[in-house]
């Protein structure tokens, strides 16, 4: 009697195993949160050091047009104007996205609305495979095809914003196309049927019904592509020329946040102003990544409401 009571009161081996399983899962979650927080903390604390420790003003950093952290400017402060890189990053990203969007959506329409069988059987797997092509391959193609082509067409060195934008355009094309295809496919069939039943032509249906109701998803795809373009480092660095100058036209060497980071991070000493200011550039990248993330969430919510 006593024995069986004791046995009932004790936790069995099985239930202990259950507890262990739950604990492990919880620890993994805690680990993820810890990782995210420490990334934010480490990059932010380094990036902010430029302003707190080295006394660079945030306005000078964001609006200054001369980047030469090693030397002192006329006002007695280091030349840490990051505007050339910020402008470079935004121009390259927007150009690439602006060119890629129509092509990606056009290709997606072709794959879902015009020839769905070929699209589903051949083109979609192909696009999904191509999403994984390493960015260094795009950079190398840019270096050996786009840059010489630019040099021969426009003169100069061939390195520049337009070369970077072309490389990024091709790089984000599979991603944006593949996401657009998923979105167009998720438009319910009865939308199309209802539109066709009302006498709309196929093109009117695609343009007025399918694209309209897929807009939030398509926007998400484009923002996703932009985020990828904005954060791409080596492929851009190989073709943009990496001159930290205010971009005056599209065919002379310029630079982006990522390209200056990859070029200079290895050549500066940890803890110096030259190094800290690079971390400030990394902080801008991080903030922009968070911004793109919030933007996609917001679009998703808006789209869900409609």
């Amino acid at each position: 009697m006593e024995d069986s009571q004791k046995k009932l009161a004790e936790h069995s081996g099985k239930s202990r195993l259950e507890k262990i399983g739950k604990t492990i899962s919880f620890l993994c979650i805690a680990f993820i949160v810890f990782v995210v927080l420490s990334i934010l903390y480490f990059v932010a604390s380094k990036g902010i050091a430029t302003f707190t420790k080295d006394g660079v003003s945030l306005i000078d950093f964001l609006t200054g047009k001369i980047w030469n952290p090693g030397s002192i400017g006329e006002n007695g402060k280091p030349l840490t104007g990051a505007l050339p890189m910020i402008a470079g990053s935004f121009i390259v990203t927007l150009l690439a996205a602006a060119v890629a969007t129509p092509f990606a959506i056009g290709a997606a329409i072709f794959m879902t609305e015009i020839s769905p069988t070929v699209g589903k059987k051949i083109l979609q797997p192909v696009i999904e495979l191509l999403v994984g092509i390493p960015s260094v391959v795009y950079g190398f193609i840019g270096l050996s095809v786009v840059v010489p082509f630019m040099r021969n067409t426009f003169g100069g060195s061939g390195f520049g914003i337009i070369s970077a934008a072309i490389v990024l355009f091709v790089m984000i094309l599979p991603t944006v196309t593949s996401m657009s295809v998923d979105t167009l496919k998720s438009v319910p069939r009865y939308y199309r049927e209802a539109s066709l039943a009302l006498g709309a032509t196929r093109w009117q249906t695609i343009y007025k019904v399918v694209l309209r109701s897929a807009t939030p998803g398509l926007l998400t795809a484009v923002v996703f592509g932009m985020a990828r373009a904005f954060g791409e480092a080596l492929a851009v660095q190989m073709v943009i020329g990496n001159a930290a100058l205010m971009p005056t036209n599209l065919i002379t060497p310029a630079s982006t946040l990522t390209s200056i980071l990859t070029m200079n991070m290895g050549n500066t000493v940890m803890g110096t102003l030259e190094n800290n200011v690079l971390w400030s550039l990394a902080l801008i990248l991080l903030v922009m990544a968070l911004f793109f993330n919030i933007l996609t969430r917001w679009i998703g919510k808006k789209g869900a409401m409609n």
Binding site: I32, I39, G231, L261, A282
Partner: peptide, 25 residues
């Protein structure tokens, strides 16, 4: 919801920032 935001954030961080964090940490 918080954890989903955390993983989404991780997914959105550019790889160069991972590299720099790895170098630092």
């Amino acid at each position: 919801e918080l954890i989903r935001i955390a993983t989404d954030t991780l997914a959105a961080i550019p790889s160069i920032v991972y590299g720099l964090f790895g170098m630092l940490f």
